[in-house]
Structures are given as structure tokens and as C-alpha cells.
């Protein structure tokens, strides 16, 4: 064992000082890098990841920035983020207004990925979730204005499933229909062909990350009609159900209103099936009991 000579003490002191210097200096660098890393997780809304990409937090750990997905994309859809772009440097992304995903059936980008950043278990491109299209502007969309543009609907690779045209009366003309493009999230892959082909100066339909595009019900919410269907009947004992009479101000009339106390339905004035006394539909939960 070495004697605790002054020379040893000085050397030990120097060692601790040097170590402290390194820990502090490199720690500062690490802190800066760490904060930058946190920032880089905020993927901008219009940057989409390739099909099968893990959720962003996992993706930035799994992706090694090799660009193999970029190389094997036959449509040059993907690019690697440059340092000045607001996407984590070197990671693959695409902007569907520039070049959308063409949804290759063999998904070459996933096959090329040497890591699990792109989920290799995704083999059906129709199950991809790169984002969800949202008809974001109801004021400029030509179909909302009453025209028959329909381009987003026509180009959709999952036509009539991911985008349907829903008919609404055109109250402006009073005699035409509005054909409203309506996205159905369970079928939309987020390929972005609709956004790419929107004829407007700025697209009225855009692909957004699911997190931005979708609401989410409270976890405890149950939809009565779904539960009823699942159970094959009403979940409550309907014979014990109490339906209170509706109270309206004296002399007030609600067109089309069904009053359970009297079993009477008010005239609905011109709406289909609105003859007085006839119940147009049963209120939910009442089954066939008038």
C-alpha cells in the first residue's frame, strides 16, 4: 500500500479536478443534446413517417438513419431530414402535398429497413397508419361549395371506404345536393394522395398524425346502441323503465315531437313521414313499445 505522501495527495487532487472538469463540460454538452433530442421528438404535423413506422418516441431510438427506405422507395417519396429541417436529423419522412405514398403492395421501404423502426410485421399496406386525412377547410372545399370536384374521393386508393361522398341538401340553392367528402379513419392509411391532388391553391384536405386528427372517447364510455347490439337486446329491464312526460310551456308545440305520456306525435310540418299521430321512429331504449 502506498504511503499518503504529499505527492500522492496532489495527484489525487488533480485526478478529481480533471474528472470534475470532464463531467461538467461533457455534462453541459449532454444537457444541450438531451434538450435538443426532446425537441426533435416534436414531429411537425405535415411531416409523415413511412408506412409501419413506430410511434415517434420509439422511432427515434430504433431508426439508425441509414436511408435504405429512401433508396428502395420506387417513387422517391421519402427523404432524409437535413439538419435545418424541423424533423430529427437524418430520419426519413415525406410531405404528402409534394409526393404522396403510392402504397406499394410489397412495401419495399419496410423490407429495406435493417432495424425495427419500420414494423416488419406490417405486410398489408391497407393496414398502414401513416396519418389520417382530414377535410380541414369546409369553407374552400369545392364540394362544400356545391360543386362536383370529387378529386380527393376519386384518387383515394381505398375509394368508398376511406373517403365516401355523403349527401346533404344544398340549402343555398334549395334544390341541389352537397356531396361532402367524408373520411373514415378505420380505412384511411394516410397515404396523402387526396392531399396531393386537392385542386385548391392550399389543400383543403390534409393528412395529419392520428394524434392531431382524432378525438378520443373517455375510456369508460360505452355506446348504448353498440352494447345493445352486442347483448342482442336491451341491457335494462324495459318493463320497469319509467318515462317521464315532457314538460313544455303552456301552448307551446314542438314539431315532430313524440310525447310518451300521451303517445302522441306532433306534426312535423313537411318532413317525410310526418303525418300527425304517427310515430316516425321509436326513441332509443323503448324497443317496440309505444
Amino acid at each position: 500500500m502506498k504511503a499518503n505522501t504529499p505527492k500522492n495527495g496532489a495527484a489525487r487532487r488533480q485526478f478529481f479536478l480533471d474528472s470534475a472538469k470532464m463531467v461538467c463540460g461533457v455534462g453541459m454538452l449532454g444537457l444541450g443534446l438531451g434538450l435538443y433530442a426532446k425537441q426533435s421528438k416534436a414531429l411537425p404535423a405535415l411531416a409523415l413517417r413511412p408506412p409501419g413506422a413506430l410511434p415517434e418516441e420509439d422511432f427515434l431510438g430504433a431508426c439508425i438513419r441509414c436511408g435504405m427506405c429512401v433508396r428502395d422507395c420506387p417513387y422517391n417519396t421519402l427523404e432524409l431530414a437535413k439538419p435545418e429541417q424541423p424533423v430529427a436529423t437524418g430520419t426519413p419522412f415525406f410531405n404528402s402535398r409534394n409526393i404522396p405514398c403510392e402504397m406499394c403492395e410489397d412495401i419495399p421501404c419496410i423490407k429495406a429497413c435493417p432495424t425495427k423502426a419500420l414494423d416488419h410485421s406490417l405486410t398489408d399496406i391497407n393496414k398502414a397508419k401513416m396519418g389520417i386525412a382530414v377535410l380541414i377547410d369546409h369553407e374552400t372545399c369545392l364540394n362544400f361549395l356545391g360543386l362536383r370536384c370529387d378529386v380527393c374521393y376519386r384518387v383515394c386508393p381505398v375509394i368508398d371506404k376511406a373517403i365516401t361522398l355523403d349527401l346533404q341538401p344544398n340549402t343555398r340553392t334549395g334544390r341541389h345536393a352537397l356531396f361532402l367528402p367524408t373520411v373514415h379513419s378505420e380505412h384511411c392509411t394516410g397515404c396523402g394522395k387526396c392531399e396531393k391532388s386537392c385542386v385548391l391553391e392550399e389543400a383543403a384536405i390534409r393528412v395529419l398524425p392520428p394524434k392531431l386528427a382524432q378525438g378520443s372517447l373517455g375510456k369508460h364510455y360505452r355506446l348504448g346502441w353498440d352494447e345493445q347490439k352486442k347483448a342482442g337486446g336491451s341491457l335494462i329491464d324495459e318493463s320497469k323503465m319509467l318515462d317521464l312526460p315532457d314538460r313544455l310551456p303552456d301552448g307551446a308545440v314542438l314539431p315532430g315531437h313524440y310525447d310518451p305520456a300521451s303517445g302522441h306525435t306532433e306534426s312535423a310540418r313537411g318532413l317525410p313521414g310526418s303525418e300527425a299521430g304517427v310515430i316516425p321512429s321509436f326513441p332509443p331504449g323503448l324497443g317496440g313499445k309505444p
Binding site: L33, Y36, E57, L60, G61, R65, E84, T89
Partner: peptide
């Protein structure tokens, strides 16, 4: 952080990737 940390600023990969995939401000 759960991020491949050095690749955020690694000049080696930035230069190499830049030459092959587009330099930008690298």
C-alpha cells in the same frame, strides 16, 4: 432520451449522408 443521441449532430454521418442524400446546411 430514447433517441439515438449522437446521430442528431454527428458530423461524420452528416457529411456522408449529406453527400449521398442531400447536404442541406450540413
Amino acid at each position: 432520451t430514447g433517441v439515438v443521441l449522437w446521430e442528431l449532430i454527428n458530423p461524420v454521418s452528416m457529411l456522408h449522408r449529406g453527400l449521398i442524400f442531400g447536404m442541406g446546411t450540413a
